[in-house]
Computed example of a mutant assay.
Amino acid sequence: MLEIDTGRPTSVAGQDDAVDAATLITDLPYGPKAAEIAREAVAVALHGTEADLLDDARLITSELATNAFDSGSPPLVLCVDRRGQTSGVLEVEITVTDGGCTHPAPSSSPIPGEEAESGRGLVIVEALADAWSLTTGTRAWCRLTRGPSPSTTST
């Protein structure tokens, strides 16, 4: 199921200068294809944005979806909120929710060894996102913010 809600939010506090807003919500398959489907959905939601934002968003979403599949239970749901402001700032919020943890979360995140093939997902999210949070077993969220492009006028 894929839902896209476009248009300006009418009653969101602090969003008075939003000029372009869209929300995409989609179910993800509970399986190894979750990350691939999530990346494709983010590409649809962020169509027309600058390449580096799209690349960061796709990588983050892939990590969040993989984490939800590996650690959670069905259903997996992706939500991408995109808000452009009159000031030229673009804000993207990405949320992946799942049906809950199937096993208790460790008290601290172990740092993967150099040769480890997994375990770096949240480190990547933290490095790329402007803000993020993880609610153990149910919800992972992050925000990416990009300012207006520098003026190309020469003096």
Rank of each mutant, 00 (worst) to 15 (best):
V77F: 08
V123A: 11
Y30K: 01
D56Q: 05
S62E: 08
D52M: 12
D20Y: 13
T152F: 14
C101R: 14
Y30Q: 03
S133D: 09
V42R: 03
A131F: 05
S107L: 08
A13V: 11
I111F: 12
P148G: 10
D81A: 07
E50M: 03
I25K: 13
R143C: 08
G113K: 08
G72F: 08
T153N: 09
E50C: 04
P104S: 02
V123Q: 07
G113F: 05
A13S: 07
R58Q: 13
T26D: 07
L2T: 15
A35T: 07
S151R: 01
R120I: 09
G113A: 14
V19N: 04
V96G: 11
R8I: 15
S149K: 10
P104D: 08
L128Q: 05
G119C: 03
T153M: 09
T136D: 10
D98H: 08
A57V: 04
D5Y: 11
T86P: 00
T102R: 14
D17S: 10
E126R: 12
T155I: 12
D52W: 11
S151V: 08
N67I: 03
T26S: 10
D5L: 15
D130N: 13
D81I: 04
L59A: 13
A45F: 06
A43C: 01
P150G: 02
S108Y: 12
S87W: 02
E115Y: 09
W132I: 01
G99L: 01
L46E: 00
C79V: 13
S109M: 11
D70V: 09
L54D: 07
L76R: 04
G100T: 06
G121F: 03
P110S: 07
D17N: 09
L28H: 05
V42E: 02
V44C: 03
C79I: 10
T152L: 14
E126V: 00
L134F: 15
D56W: 00
S118K: 10
